[in-house]
Computed example of a mutant assay.
Amino acid sequence: MRWRRRWKSEDRTGTRSCPRTAFNFHNTFCMLINMGNIDRGCKRTISREEKVWQNELKDLIWLELQARCSGRTLAQQDMYLCSERKLVPALINNIMEYQFVNTNPCQSESKLHFMGHHDDLIDEDKCAAEDQNAGCLEFDCQQCSEAIGAAMRDVYSLLEAFNNAVALYPSSKAMMADHPQIATKAFDNRVKVGI
Results as ranks from 00 to 15, higher is better:
residue 1 M to L: 04
residue 2 R to V: 05
residue 2 R to Y: 03
residue 3 W to G: 03
residue 6 R to F: 09
residue 9 S to Q: 01
residue 9 S to N: 05
residue 10 E to A: 05
residue 12 R to F: 06
residue 15 T to K: 12
residue 17 S to G: 06
residue 20 R to S: 12
residue 20 R to Q: 11
residue 20 R to G: 09
residue 20 R to Y: 09
residue 21 T to R: 14
residue 21 T to W: 11
residue 22 A to H: 07
residue 30 C to K: 11
residue 30 C to T: 04
residue 34 N to V: 03
residue 36 G to V: 07
residue 38 I to Q: 15
residue 41 G to M: 11
residue 45 T to D: 14
residue 45 T to V: 12
residue 52 V to W: 01
residue 54 Q to V: 02
residue 54 Q to G: 02
residue 56 E to Q: 12
residue 60 L to K: 14
residue 61 I to E: 08
residue 63 L to Q: 07
residue 63 L to D: 05
residue 68 R to S: 11
residue 72 R to V: 01
residue 73 T to I: 03
residue 74 L to D: 03
residue 74 L to W: 13
residue 75 A to N: 11
residue 78 D to P: 00
residue 79 M to Y: 09
residue 79 M to V: 10
residue 79 M to C: 07
residue 80 Y to K: 11
residue 81 L to Q: 10
residue 83 S to Y: 05
residue 85 R to E: 00
residue 86 K to E: 15
residue 91 L to Q: 06
residue 92 I to P: 08
residue 93 N to V: 04
residue 95 I to Q: 08
residue 98 Y to E: 02
residue 98 Y to T: 08
residue 99 Q to V: 03
residue 100 F to C: 03
residue 102 N to P: 05
residue 102 N to Q: 11
residue 104 N to R: 14
residue 104 N to Y: 08
residue 107 Q to F: 05
residue 108 S to L: 02
residue 109 E to I: 12
residue 109 E to A: 15
residue 110 S to A: 09
residue 110 S to N: 15
residue 116 G to A: 01
residue 116 G to I: 00
residue 122 I to F: 13
residue 128 A to C: 06
residue 129 A to H: 12
residue 130 E to T: 03
residue 130 E to R: 13
residue 132 Q to D: 07
residue 134 A to S: 13
residue 135 G to A: 09
residue 136 C to L: 05
residue 136 C to M: 08
residue 137 L to Q: 11
residue 137 L to R: 15
residue 142 Q to I: 07
residue 142 Q to D: 10
residue 144 C to G: 02
residue 145 S to V: 01
residue 146 E to P: 01
residue 147 A to Q: 08
residue 151 A to T: 02
residue 152 M to S: 15
residue 153 R to A: 10
residue 158 L to A: 04
residue 162 F to E: 00
residue 163 N to F: 02
residue 164 N to K: 09
residue 165 A to E: 05
residue 166 V to L: 13
residue 168 L to I: 09
residue 174 A to N: 09
residue 174 A to H: 10
residue 176 M to I: 07
residue 179 H to S: 07
residue 181 Q to H: 06
residue 181 Q to K: 14
residue 185 K to L: 11
residue 187 F to I: 02
residue 188 D to C: 13
residue 189 N to G: 12
residue 193 V to T: 14
residue 194 G to P: 04
